[in-house]
């Protein structure tokens, strides 16, 4: 892959600068690294802004454009992206710690960041020309997804014809490409999950159906995606189950040798945990003044040794 990425001016932040002089023998990509600290500080500082945007995020069923711009400026979408395209190649723990912090205030924003951000990791598992197509001209281009294996596939010369309708594509309105799931039929096995692939399509090849009308995670704008018989070349597909722990990526940084589902599944569970932490903080403030019958709900002695205190010792 040729490093022809154009680094967006918006992503030239202090997080870009802190990593330049790297003392030997340290993990420059982990939670204790200078860059991770900058990213986490940026996430913490966004709390009040995200709080102020909550109502619009919820009522518009969409992450505000300003929030996406802020995530770009802070370098959040670059956390798991390859350095060939200006990415930081951070350990996923850093990515998850940022999600935890964002989710305390706005779980929809954290969810969209988690899902879209992890796609910048998966992009490195495709054949190299695929990443070049997506990021060759602009490395800030974003990808949404819907992985359910509901697509209909017909193998053809050089690739596949794909059609179908997928649900729950979080943040799709902010993205120019999409990952879609489907099983490739063979003569012996019309449907075997071992033949599951992720198909990468540009925006011109799909339509977004605005139907995200839900009670929670409204701001994620997770609308349906519809595809009507389009050609997807072989290199724009990824057989994630055949990767078997990423053996074919041994020449890449360790980050890209991790099993796909281990990385992806944390992107959609971590925001939940962050939202719970946020709820706990709100609950504690309620409990300080609340009576349960004749008894005050707060118990300072209990709280001094409580899970809340021990949680604060952990990352984020």
């Amino acid at each position: 892959m040729t490093a022809t990425a154009t680094t967006a001016t918006a992503t030239t932040t202090s997080a870009t600068k802190v990593q330049q002089d790297k003392p030997a023998g340290e993990n420059h990509f982990g939670l204790d690294s200078p860059r991770a600290q900058v990213l986490l500080e940026a996430a913490r500082n966004m709390g009040p802004v995200l709080e102020a945007r909550q109502e619009a995020c919820n009522s518009d069923r969409r992450i505000p454009d300003d929030t996406i711009a802020d995530f770009h400026a802070a370098g959040f979408f670059k956390m798991l992206q390859s350095s060939e395209y200006g990415g930081y190649e951070m350990d996923p723990q850093v990515f998850y710690a940022v999600l935890l912090e964002i989710a305390k205030t706005c779980m929809s924003s954290a969810w969209a960041l988690g899902v879209i951000g992890v796609h910048n990791w998966q992009m490195n598992l495709f054949d190299d020309p695929a990443a070049q197509e997506v990021w060759g001209k602009d490395s800030t281009v974003l990808i949404s997804s819907s992985y359910a294996p509901v697509g209909q596939v017909t193998p053809v010369e050089g690739g596949f014809m794909l059609k179908g309708r997928w649900s729950f594509s979080s943040g799709c309105e902010h993205c120019d490409w999409v990952f879609l799931g489907a099983v490739v039929p063979t003569a012996e096995e019309p449907w075997n999950m071992l033949n599951y692939r992720t198909f990468l399509l540009p925006k011109k090849d799909y339509k977004i159906v605005d139907n995200w009308d839900v009670v929670g995670l409204r701001g994620t704008g997770s609308h349906d995606i519809v595809v009507n018989d389009v050609f997807v070349p072989e290199h724009r597909t990824h057989n994630m189950l055949a990767d078997d722990g990423g053996r074919k990526f041994m020449h890449k940084p360790p980050l890209y040798r991790l099993p796909f589902m281990q990385v992806f599944s944390r992107a959609v569970s971590t925001p939940t945990l962050g939202a719970l932490e946020g709820a706990l903080e709100k609950y504690v403030s309620v409990a300080k003044t609340r009576l349960a019958g004749a008894i005050m709900m707060h118990d300072d002695q209990m709280q001094n040794g409580s899970p809340l205190k021990s949680m604060r010792r952990l990352p984020a």
Binding site: Q54, N58, M107, S108, W111, A148, F168, V214, V215, G216, L217, M261, F264, S265, V268, S269, P271, T272, A275, L276, G278, A279, K282, Y283, V286, A287, R290, A292, M297
Partner: peptide, 30 residues
């Protein structure tokens, strides 16, 4: 439940976060 009626009112921050948490369990990975 412990927050009493303040937790079930429209505009409750706790309830909003609960709805988000509830929605997340609909994802297949969760």
């Amino acid at each position: 439940k412990s927050a009493g009626s303040s937790g079930i009112r429209h505009g409750s921050a706790l309830l909003k976060q609960h709805h988000d948490i509830l929605a997340s369990q609909a994802h297949i990975a969760n």
